[in-house]
Every structure is written in C-alpha cells, then in structure tokens.
Design a protein around this nucleic acid. Structure first.
Length: 291
DNA sequence: ACCCAGGCCTGGA
DNA sequence: TCCAGGCATGGG
C-alpha cells in the first residue's frame, strides 16, 4: 500500500514502506540499465521520456518515503512505471514458498517489476546475450547518447544530464557499422535486423502488447537474436507478463545447486517471474564471494 | 594465459 | 532432441 503527498515545490512524495518498494534493489537488480546512483538511496534516470529523480529517505513523520521531482501531471506515469498499484507483499503471502525461495525473498524483498517501455526493453535485452550487466549498461547509455535527445534537470542546485532512449525513427537509418562502434560486437546485427523488421511492420509492437504470454514468446523468438531466455526477459520486463521465468546462467546455477537439477515453477503461481527476480538478485548480489 | 558474462545460431550426431 | 563451436567485447 502507498499514498502520495506533495511537497512545498509541488513534487510528489510517495509514502511507501521499504519492504514493499526498495528503489536501490529495484533499480539495480538487472531489469533496467539506465538508472544512475548519484548518492546513497538517490537515483536519477529516464522513464516515460522524462528525467526522473528518486530519493528514498525519511520524510516528516514517515520513516520511509520516496522524494521525486515528478509533478502532478506525470504522477500517474510514475505510479504505473513503479508498479505501485500491485501490493507485492500481499501477492507473495498467498504463495507457499520453499526454503530457497523464502531465503531469496527475504533478501530481495522490495523489488518491483518495472513497467518499462517495450521498444527499449527489446533493444536492451538484445544486447544482453553473453554479456555482463556492466557492459549492457555501457552499450545502452552510449546508444542513448548517440541517438537520443538530451535532457537536463536541476535538483538541489545540481544539474543532471541524460538522454532519452532512442525511438525507432531515431535508429531507422543507423548502420551495423555504427552500432559496432558502440561495443555491441555481434549483437549489432541483431539490433539492425530488428530495426529493419519494425520499419517494415510498424504495428508489430502494438500487436505484441495485446497477445498472450505464449503467443508473445513465439512471436519474439522469430526474431534473430531472441531465444528462450531473452524472450522471457522481454515478456517479464517489457510486457509485464509476470509468469515469465527467464533462465540465465545464474538461475541455471541455482537450479543445479539448490534444486538438484529440477525446479518446478508451478509453486510460484502466476508470478514466477517475480520470484525469479528475487532469486537472481539474491544469487548475484547476495553475500557470496563470487562477485 | 584462461575464464566468464541475464545467449543465440548453425551444423552434426 | 541434445551438443560443440563460433560469435565481439571487457574484466577478473
């Protein structure tokens, strides 16, 4: 549950418990790659084509709040982006989680699955195969700097700059060689082909938003560079099909070591993707020495 | 010098 | 159906 107040300068303050929405975990867990941590518990990034500031701290009588630079007109977009209408605590309590999933949840609690732009999500996860989160971040930031539009915002007398994620139109004339200059490597070809397909079929993304999870997976996998894992990431992060369960190297590792090689995701109901994200975060950021 | 990273595609058994 | 090798790039 959450509520919203407005500060003296008419920006929205979201009152929400950190166990329900933790911005550090949510913005750093590997679902979005264009948020920058500018201080402790303070992030700046681009969402719904605006430069957004989110700072989680105490506020007045509240122990936990999220201070934003978002005014009333854009507030619904922010609420939607952060998926605040969903009460994750309540959804999880309906499940009967096994021991490992419980440990992962306890560690990762506060992650929300963002409702990100579909085009941006597809491009981002086309860059993800056989890559590190750091390199993905590098690539999509360079792509935005090169083809997006500059945004500036001033907060607390500090000026922050970023760039919108490029639109299809802004990428429509780019060449494979140009993409390769941004360290995409073999993924440049994937992106180029995706752009060409969209140019030929401009309603493809809208159709994708309307269809079921299974249909979306099939449709996405018909694109060069999208296999099972990337298709599931796009379904989860770009289409908000929270039943999608992407299996990457880390999740494979968990299945081998924690589930003796076989994991039945049925016990995660229709929100397996949320549990997956808890596990991914616990595995990659939890206190093991491999990272 | 090797190994790995939020994999995918192709070719061959 | 499953497996090996190749694919660019950057970091440990």
């Amino acid at each position: 549950m959450y509520k919203v107040e407005f500060s003296e300068n008419n920006t929205a303050v979201i009152i929400v418990d950190k166990t329900e929405l933790d911005i550090n975990k949510t913005l750093d867990c590997g679902q979005a790659f264009r948020w920058n941590k500018v201080a402790d518990n303070w992030w700046i990034g681009v969402a719904f084509n605006s430069l957004v500031s989110l700072k989680q701290c105490s506020y007045k009588q509240y122990e936990n709040a999220i201070l934003t630079n978002v005014t009333k007109d854009n507030l619904p977009k922010l609420i939607e982006y952060l998926d605040l209408a969903t009460d994750y605590t309540s959804e999880i309590s309906k499940l009967n989680l096994d021991n490992y999933a419980t440990k992962a949840y306890n560690y990762s609690r506060g992650i929300h699955i963002l409702r990100q732009n579909l085009f941006e999500t597809i491009v981002t996860f086309l860059m993800s195969s056989c890559n590190t989160m750091r390199n993905i971040r590098n690539i999509v930031n360079k792509l935005s700097e090169r083809y997006g539009e500059k945004l500036e915002v001033c907060i607390d007398n500090q000026t922050f700059t970023s760039y919108t994620f490029p639109t299809l139109k802004q990428l429509s004339d780019a060449t494979v060689a140009e993409f390769q200059e941004l360290s995409m490597g073999f993924r440049a070809e994937y992106l180029y082909q995706f752009i060409q397909q969209l140019k030929a079929n401009s309603s493809a993304l809208d159709k994708l938003k309307d269809c079921s999870y299974n249909t979306a997976i099939t449709s996405l996998k018909s694109l060069n560079g999208i296999g099972d894992k990337v298709a599931n990431c796009i379904c989860l992060f770009g289409l908000h099909h929270v039943e999608a369960f992407p299996i990457d190297t880390h999740i494979k590792h968990i299945i081998e070591n924690e589930y003796n090689g076989y994991l039945d995701i049925k016990s995660f109901g229709n929100i397996a993707g949320i549990i997956q994200q808890y596990m991914f975060y616990y595995e990659t950021f939890g206190s093991n020495t491999r990272y």
